[in-house]
Amino acid sequence: MKHVIKNILATLATLLLAAPAVAAEVNVAVAANFTAPMKQIAAAFEKESGHKVVLSYGASGKFYAQIKNGAPFQLFLSADDEKPAQLEKDALTVPGSRFTYAIGSLVLWSAKAGFVDPKGDVLGKGNFGKIALANPKLAPYGSAAIEVLTKRGIVTTLTPKMVQGENISQTFQFVSSGNAELGFVALSQVMKDGKISNGSAWIVPDVLHTPIRQDAVLLATGKDNAAARALLTYLKSETAKKIIRSYGYNI
């Protein structure tokens, strides 16, 4: 009897110890704007590697606060490059793991067809009630929009017409519901399979604003997590990049 129990315990121990080496699990904090491509990347990665990926979506600022207070994430895909850098300063990351996984493109978009001309001259005409943008203090897409308007010299004239979304998803809802006639949103929100499917848009040239870098970082908690390391490498692979580009990001 003793022998049997010993055997069972030994088998259990082997199973428990072996399990992480075969298929580990990684918890990833993902910026809300990257939800759709990340789902696709995670599915492809799981199939290829056998690891399990658990995704949480949300605002990067909230994730920052959660990670600082011990949230169980091993990988963080931020909507900007500031928060991962800050976490690195806080010594909560694996040094040298930070990199840019996507560069966002800004687009001036309206749900109405023919409202936004391909050069964005509609901005100067001002024949609209509200223009939506993401909060420039919080969202890189918002500060990029302000840069564009500053270069055109129309920030002050447009300020009374501005409504701010807390993030780029809310900004998109303001415009798509018609509450704001037009707004600066992410190209990834209006682009599907390489083209803008509805409404009208001006894809803002990259030279008009500082690049909207989205950085990822391996957190200190994921230092020995095989799945986290593998996923980080996978994000840099050509397969992943192809998926990322198809959603309107540069990389």
Partner: peptide
């Protein structure tokens, strides 16, 4: 308050 928190 939320703005302050999000802006760290």
């Amino acid at each position: 308050i939320y703005d302050h928190v999000e802006a760290l």
